[in-house]
Design a protein around this nucleic acid. Structure first.
Lengths: 113, 113
DNA sequence: TCCATTAGTTCGACGTTACGGAACTAAAGA
DNA sequence: TCTTTAGTTCCGTAACGTCGAACTAATGGA
């Protein structure tokens, strides 16, 4: 198992972020991580809510988020602790990411009727 | 040639917009259309600047932008007049699109050194 | 009216990426 | 050492992107 790659702040691109967030599964994961109090492991999303995906697929989605620079994953024992890198990113990208998450939320709220 | 499909405002999704804007070619096109005084035809991008792509590829990119709801294309004689739908979109998505374009601009400016 | 031109779309082949099951690996405990 | 747990990697198949070639629709001559 190769070490997990995390891009440095300079390497993170708008394009990469938009691509990563243009998938509903990844947005759900990222949104939860942003809202989470503490780091979450991948398995939390295996059973969780309406996200029923094979773990190989989930692993790929985490990798995409990680390599886009949106999240950080640290091995802790058997599991991986995932957290959002939102503090760092806010400096570089300003309101972009927040406004994207808000737009998704609005959309979800509207479709409830 | 089938009529060009334009989604209604309600049909436009965050996901579709992010996906459309996660491609450098489409961002360039969209950015220029947002900044343009009047509508531009597709051919303007064929020769233009550093965008050297075959017209079939360009046509696909315009289609993606159009079906994501970002631009409107109207046939006028032989050509297609493309314009951004930014006024409509601003109502629905607030600052999201503007902040994305700004983030791309920042990135472009920084890489100039 | 017919032909040529211009602007863009569609088709089809090829390459790339995504999904998901099966096999694998790394850490930790019995 | 064996087992379990948590993720990753591999690989076959399906979906998507790119671009040349053929096509279509509108317009302007001869």
């Amino acid at each position: 198992m190769r070490p997990l790659y995390h891009p440095s702040l300079q390497e993170i691109t708008v394009q990469g972020i938009l691509y990563a967030l243009s998938d509903p599964v990844r947005v759900r994961i990222y949104g939860e991580l942003v809202g989470a109090e503490c780091a979450m492991n991948c398995a939390a999303f295996l059973s969780n809510g309406n996200l029923k995906l094979p773990k190989s697929t989930l692993s790929q989605h985490f990798k995409t988020l990680r390599e886009a620079g949106l999240i950080r994953s640290e091995r802790q024992g058997v599991e991986l602790k995932n957290s959002s890198r939102c503090q760092e990113l806010k400096k570089k990208f300003g309101p972009m990411i927040v406004s994207i998450l808000k737009a998704y939320e609005n959309e979800a709220n509207k479709s409830k009727h």
